[in-house]
Design a binder for these strands. Structure first.
Length: 833
RNA sequence: GCGAGAGUGGCGGAAUUGGUAGACGCGCUGGACUUAGGAUCCAGUGGAUCCUUCCGUGGGGGUUCAAAUCCCCCCUCUCGCACCA
């Protein structure tokens, strides 16, 4: 090995990257005799270049992967591409590049970047979701879901993004705006395909408690998103005719105070009830206006309550009172039944609406100690209390009344106890080109016909021109659209919607177990060995979207007997963003740090080290030019402490190390070495605190410098200690900075690859110091420090503390009330002042 | 508004179970080496100070021998949800 000179990252890194590639160091093979560990990062969209967020994510994941390899696990650590999506189409529109060309060129470039970072991927398992061999199985599962009633088509009001010219799922609307382009979302009525995620709402919620390895934050977000609430479904009969209006309420205790009915503008009854009444025109105008209003305006809380009488009445089933039916902007079609029983006395929204339109307010819950008067109220009373104006329920506490009223409802067949979820079915139709075609055919004679599985994949045609005008180019692509009906062989049209790209990312982690398998979606034997993912790492921005969809998809796959697990990700780490000057890096701010530049300037190891050291993984990481300088300096220090002290290291080699000739400074360094091994292991294993793990090795290096700084004329026993410290430092850092670690491992005379070397162990006895420092406090204030033997008894420590000269000044002449001895740590002498 | 999390030197951050607040790194100051240093090494670095003591983990109270850590109130920031009936 020729490494005597300066640390040269470029040379070191390319050498070892080639070595790993040539030796297939990271190829993973199923081995039933070995315990597996599946570690995964969220795969990237091939946008063109890797950014610092990726680098941070993958540096963390790679550390875990390499650490687990050294711990003897059979590690699966794959990489692939979330390759369908809009940016490819935008590139086609703006630059005339075909989405496929754009995508595959980006994959090539980004793959080079990832290789230059030295990540330990098994590249033989690489997959791209735009590959027909991948999406054919997604289409196959779609057919199973269709057959099993988990995929269905319906006409409904959906979230439409004009910018992206497509429908969005609820999860993809962030504060009323498109998750991708930030355009305000508008309602639009469209016929589209849905996945029945609501069928699993209860199970998805239940299992959140069985995911102890997930961050609390993500669990809470998912729980809120699913939004389970307990209440009642109540039928309000129409005043005229036979029909009724069902509502969902969580406040059935207030039902006697329901004085009017509110429908969502999109509710079918809104238009229906107004037909033939004098309100017809006004209702039409109102509904039309509401449907044009974007979601932000409609859903903002300070937006004024507004509505229109639809010209009909229903009856309160408990009081028999007639209730006028209104359509109003604040009623949401997508929650409950789209109809609200309005109780103005006890709901703030209903109150405001009633005041505006002069509707009656009836108090039905009274505070324990005072009386409410409907005329004098300035806001709704939403607290607990006692029922009044509520017939047989008068005098009952309202919490108790909730159950009693449901019982009564059920007895009278007016309604029933029910739970409602906020979660909606997942709309997966996208009116876009660059996605997986939905395998459905429309036949004039047979209607909706699924493509037979043996005809899969339905290939996305590549001979199209994407112009960005007139919707998806598939619609006008005759050879694609025109087909024959699989059922009657007559003329038929293909579905031109493609699937939401979140469908691909909902199962890619399972496909990594067997990316080459052509006998089905997953190879049972291999998927059973590798799955579930033991540790998943990615950004918090997917807390709901991708992570909820994946949990749904694993349930679907489980139901069809494809996999045996229910939860796909046992442990989840959500790493924080990389920011600069307190803000997210973005092209428009011009504050983007390019990983390529960092590799060129410092090398991959320095870049990785900084990502791991600057902040604990789940927190934001503030980019610092000086910080990365510091990481580079540290690796140079690591380099030099080995390379510049080869004389000492050689002297220590082969020394049996019976400890007889070891000096005090040798003992100290040996202790520090063992303490460092312990600290680093525990920080990685138990806490994922890589920053403190690296800090511990920095401390060890500082001691090593101090050791040789006292002169290199050391005996063989001390030299052996120094050599051991160097080897341990290299091993401990190797998951973080693998290239320099491999190189120095060679310098130390060892054989590659360092990932095959067992993780170092520490000796608890050697890690213990024989002298410990005891802090002496008087009345809680530090007044002195004692150095005592590690095995000193509490009594001995107590005596020495009381007689310590620094302490006596504070206690002489005062009555000692109490002496607290915390073993091996501290003595607190309590005196009366 | 509801829910979750956070607030520690000039900066990033440590303090794992209530027990030495500020590990480690950056920056800064001084020194050594040097033609030179933006290299390297060494030392110092929370604040105040009558120089041996006081103050100090967003603010105020409390529990405790002992609180960054536990409890109560308040302030600020970040994130999520946001007319969810």
């Amino acid at each position: 090995m020729t490494a005597q000179g300066k640390y040269n990252p470029a040379a070191v890194e390319s050498r070892w990257q080639k070595f790993w590639e040539d030796n297939k160091t990271f190829k993973s093979v199923e081995d039933q005799d070995r315990e597996k560990y599946y570690v995964l990062e969220m795969f990237p969209y091939p946008s063109g270049r890797i950014h610092m967020g990726h680098v941070r994510n993958y540096s963390i994941t790679d550390l875990v992967a390499r650490y687990k390899m050294m711990r003897g696990f059979n590690v699966l650590h794959p990489m692939g591409w979330d390759a369908f999506g809009m940016p490819a189409e935008n590139a086609a529109i703006q630059r005339g590049v075909h989405p496929a060309t754009f995508t595959y060129e980006n994959i090539d470039y980004m793959k080079k970047q990832l290789k230059a970072m030295g990540f330990s991927y098994d590249w033989e398992r690489e997959l791209a979701t735009c590959d027909p061999e991948y999406y054919r199985w997604e289409q196959w599962l779609f057919l199973k879901m269709y057959e099993g009633g988990l995929a269905y088509q319906k006409k409904s009001f959906v979230n439409w993004c004009d910018e992206c010219q497509t429908v969005l799922a609820n999860e993809q609307v962030i504060a009323g705006r498109c998750w991708r382009c930030d355009r305000e979302v508008v309602p639009r009525e469209i016929n589209g395909w849905f996945f029945k995620i609501t069928e699993f709402a209860e199970d998805l919620l239940d299992y959140l408690e069985k995911l102890p390895g997930w961050p609390e934050r993500v669990l809470t977000m998912q729980k809120n998103w699913i939004g389970k609430s307990y209440g009642a479904r109540i039928e309000f009969p129409l005043a005229e005719g036979d029909g009724s209006i069902p509502v969902f309420t969580t406040r059935q205790d207030t039902v006697f105070g329901a004085t009017f009915m509110v429908l969502a503008p999109e509710h079918p009854l809104t238009i229906e009830l107004s037909r033939g009444t004098s309100q017809e025109k006004e209702v039409d105008g109102f509904v039309e206006r509401m449907l044009k209003t974007d979601r932000i305006k409609r859903s903002s809380e300070d937006y004024e309550k507004e509505g229109v009488f639809v010209g009909a009445y229903c009856k309160n089933p408990f009081t028999g009172h007639e209730m006028p039916v209104f359509a109003a902007n604040f009623a949401l079609m997508e929650y409950g039944t789209g109809a609200v029983m309005a109780v103005p006395a006890h709901d703030q929204r209903d109150f405001e609406f009633a005041k505006k339109y002069g509707l009656p307010i009836i108090v039905v819950i009274s505070p324990e100690s005072s009386n409410l008067s409907a005329d004098e109220m300035t806001e709704a009373y939403v607290e607990d209390g006692v029922l009044v104006n509520s017939g047989a329920f008068n005098g009952m506490n309202n919490r108790a009344a909730m159950d009693a009223i449901i019982d009564d409802l059920e007895k009278k067949h007016l309604g029933n106890r029910t739970v409602n979820y906020r979660l909606r079915d997942w709309g997966i139709s996208r009116q876009r080109y660059w996605g997986a075609p939905i395998p459905i055919v429309y036949c004039d004679r047979c209607g909706v016909v699924p493509v037979p599985p043996e005809q899969l994949p339905v290939l996305l045609p590549l001979d199209v021109t994407v112009t960005g005008e007139g919707g998806s180019p598939l619609v006008s692509h005759e050879p694609f659209v025109k087909t024959t009906c699989p059922s009657c062989a007559g003329p038929a049209r293909r579905e031109t919607d493609t699937m939401d790209t979140f469908v691909e990312s909902s199962w890619y982690y399972a496909r990594y177990s067997c990316p080459d398998y052509d006998g089905g979606m997953v190879d049972g034997k291999r998927v059973d060995y590798w799955l579930p993912v033991d540790q998943y790492i990615g950004g918090i921005e997917h807390a709901i979207l991708h992570l909820l969809y994946s949990r749904f998809y694993s349930r679907v796959m489980e139901r069809f007997g494809l996999v045996k697990y229910r939860e796909p990700f046992t442990r989840l780490l959500t790493q924080g963003m990389v920011i600069k000057d307190g803000a997210k890096m973005s092209k428009s701010k011009g504050n983007v740090i390019d990983p390529d530049d960092m590799i060129k300037k410092y090398g991959a190891d320095t870049t990785r080290l900084f990502m791991l050291f600057a902040s604990p993984p789940e927190k934001e990481l503030e980019w610092s030019d000086q910080g990365i300088d510091g990481s580079f300096r540290f690796l140079n220090r690591l380099w030099r402490i080995i390379v510049d002290n080869m004389d000492v290291i050689k002297k220590g080699k082969g020394f049996p190390g019976d400890g007889s000739a070891i000096t005090q400074r040798g003992v100290d360094l040996r202790r520090k070495t063992h303490q460092t091994v312990k600290k680093v292991t525990e920080d990685i294993e138990e806490r994922f605190h890589f920053n403190t793990a690296i800090a511990a090795v920095m401390e060890l290096l500082n001691e090593m410098y101090a050791f040789v700084g006292q002169g290199k004329d050391v005996g063989p026993a001390d030299a052996a200690v120094f050599r051991d410290a160097g080897m341990k430092a290299v091993l401990l850092l190797s998951p973080a900075v693998p290239h320099i670690a491999e190189e120095l491992w060679g310098v130390l005379g060892q054989k590659p690859s360092i990932v095959t070397v067992p993780w170092p162990v520490w000796d608890e006895e050697l890690a213990k110091s024989d002298e410990i420092t005891i802090v002496v406090q008087v009345n809680g204030k530090v007044r002195g420090r004692l150095s005592v033997g590690a095995d000193a008894s509490d009594e001995e420590i107590r005596e020495r503390a009381i007689s310590d000269e620094k302490v006596t000044g504070y206690i002489t002449g005062k009555e000692i009330k109490n002496v607290i001895v915390v073993p091996k740590k501290l003595v607190n002498i309590v005196v009366i002042q």
